[in-house]
Design a protein around this nucleic acid. Structure first.
Lengths: 352, 352
DNA sequence: ATGAAAGCGCTAACAT
DNA sequence: ATGTTAGCGCTTTCAT
């Protein structure tokens, strides 16, 4: 059996050169696919590479290469286990690989300090560009990096006080369209439950909800619309409150995944799932297995990855021009829960 | 506005040395936290680092450092967007970070060639170790890498003809215990639907099912137990077949996530979800939102990551000894669907 | 078409 | 406690 460690050493280019009787530079040319090496020599070099089991040392190569390019893209997200980010990373990986670029990713887990640490670490590792889902409030610490040539792009939310390329979903429109749809089928009392009000995405979505109400001349009632409900206890408490009174909502918009789960649990516990309409932001895995099927507002992860990749690779390759803010549309997946109508005063049924 | 690219160049250690009036080596010592530099000099160096906005060049450092250690761990999985792998990566990331190690991950997407490409690429990049979820059948191409000092570990399934550390879940026991549990509450006709029979995990799980039947002196009936049902069409067809006859199963074991989804859809479509017991391998996101709640056999991802990390870091640090095969227990999350009893001949109700 | 020499930014090994 | 020198494995630059 093979040993885990050994004294044997990897073959270097010079070994390949010696073995094939050519100069170091010729080997380099062959390895890098540069033109101008005769067929005969190319063949001899390739034989030596196979014979010596030579592996190109990318670290040494990066060090010397012009501008120290490492063909590595750093991606800093909140949590790579979050399906939104893991799907994004997968899409990005495929695009990057076509260019021979690998993706180095890291999770911040809501900690701004960890964001800064990761940025510094990734830059030390010589990433050619950095895609950041910003957690910190102040990103001025990145200015010097930008000046020194590291290309940067913000994802999912814009960064505090740093004007840089950003790619985000159209949070507000997604929620606005969903709300308007509910109004169209007769709902006038629509509750809104959203994420932490310090989050850009949470406030954007809330704005969309309010805009839809305004457009329909419906009054915004803070009694049934609230942010910062990510905490399960708070969320359940809020739900009990709004459903205990006489003036219940007939529909709910959820601004976040985990909140959606609490809402569904709550509705099922009171057997209200077929009476109260529900549209939820973000994909809910297996939403179509639930009864009624839950309507969702989906972000176009593939498009986001495609656009973000194009933009940052363009910058890495030297594209100038002022920072762009690219907004990617969301799409409503209309399912049963979005089609539930309010119970009318005449008492006609609400079941789809 | 900051420019995306500039002619300014990053400060090097020698710049810091010149600025603080010390030697290069002293700066190196300060940067690497080595002992033996006076307080006064340390301070002066740190001031210079701040003034010049110096960032340690990890690429150059790796090149020179003993054994070329890059403090990078490569992880090759099937698909980083698969929740099992993304959760594993997240756990691993946290453990690695404590050691100053970053994780470079890549998806194979079922393509053995891509596995080999990724291995070569990651080794070129100088990863200190490599965790691989094997896709290829033959891994003898890795032998030379092992000999040259790259530490390797296989995850989730053992590799073909290469005797190397491996960390896997106890697939067979998980399924066996689940099956035995169903038998204990009276089921005698239990269907099994599994993944592709070329997959190690799929056959392992199937073995667990068969072992439980044997232990209970129940006959194995291939009519209601089949692998290679990942394809939705095939899966649905198989379900229709086994539920159309007179001798229906009263319970189902699912060996894979996506198959579980088809089973649930099927049961709901015939309104059988409260009559047929179901236990499914692997986590089903929001399984507890379904009605009845679906019982699952869960892999202990945190333990898997912890154990895999310990093992590969030990190897990287030079641990000798013959390859270990570490089996991590699974756990049944008993939910409503596991408690459904078979309809008895006397006709007593089955609804929990 | 091929090669020789310099040096990327750092750490190892060895002074002092 | 601090410094000097060599060289990691490669690409660049400049010959030939």
């Amino acid at each position: 059996m093979a040993m885990q460690r050994s004294e044997r050493t990897r073959a270097r280019m010079s070994d390949v050169a010696a073995h094939s009787g050519v100069s170091l530079k010729t080997v380099s040319r062959v390895v890098n696919g540069e033109a101008g090496v005769s067929k005969a020599l190319t063949e001899r070099v390739n034989e030596a590479i196979a014979a010596l089991n030579y592996r190109h040392n990318f670290v040494a190569s990066s060090l010397r290469r012009s501008q120290g390019r490492t063909k590595t893209l750093g991606v800093i997200v909140d949590d790579i286990a979050n399906p939104f980010f893991s799907k994004f990373l997968r899409e990005l990986e495929d695009i990057a690989r076509e260019r021979g670029v690998e993706v180095l990713s890291g999770s911040v887990a809501g900690d701004p300090e960890r964001e800064a640490e990761l940025v510094e670490n990734f830059i030390s590792r010589g990433v050619d560009g950095l895609i950041i889902v910003p957690t910190a409030k102040d990103h001025s610490y990145l200015e010097s990096e930008v000046e020194l040539g590291t290309s940067l792009l913000f994802l999912d939310r814009p960064a505090g006080n740093l004007n840089i390329d950003v790619v985000i979903s159209d949070n507000a429109s997604g929620i606005k369209n969903a709300t308007t749809g509910l109004i169209a089928i007769g709902h006038t009392r629509i509750a809104y439950l959203g994420d932490n009000d310090s989050l850009f995405t949470a406030t954007e979505r809330f704005i969309g909800y309010q805009a839809a109400l305004k457009e329909a001349n419906l009054k915004f009632d803070p009694e049934i619309a609230q942010l910062s409900l990510r905490d399960k206890q708070k969320c359940r408490f809020f739900l009990s409150k709004i459903f205990s009174g006489a003036n219940r909502p007939s529909a709910i918009i959820s601004g976040q995944n985990e909140i959606t789960v609490e809402i569904i649990r709550f509705l099922h516990s009171l057997n209200l799932q077929n009476e109260i309409a529900l549209i939820a932001f973000d994909e809910l895995p297996y939403a179509e297995l639930l009864s009624p099927k839950v309507a969702t507002i989906q972000q176009d992860i593939k498009a986001i990855a495609q656009i973000a990749a194009e933009q940052i690779f363009a910058r890495i390759e030297g594209a100038e021009g002022k920072p762009r803010k690219i907004v990617v549309p969301t799409q409503i997946d209309v399912q049963e829960s979005a089609l539930i109508k309010p119970i009318t005063k005449s008492g006609s049924a609400s079941r789809r």
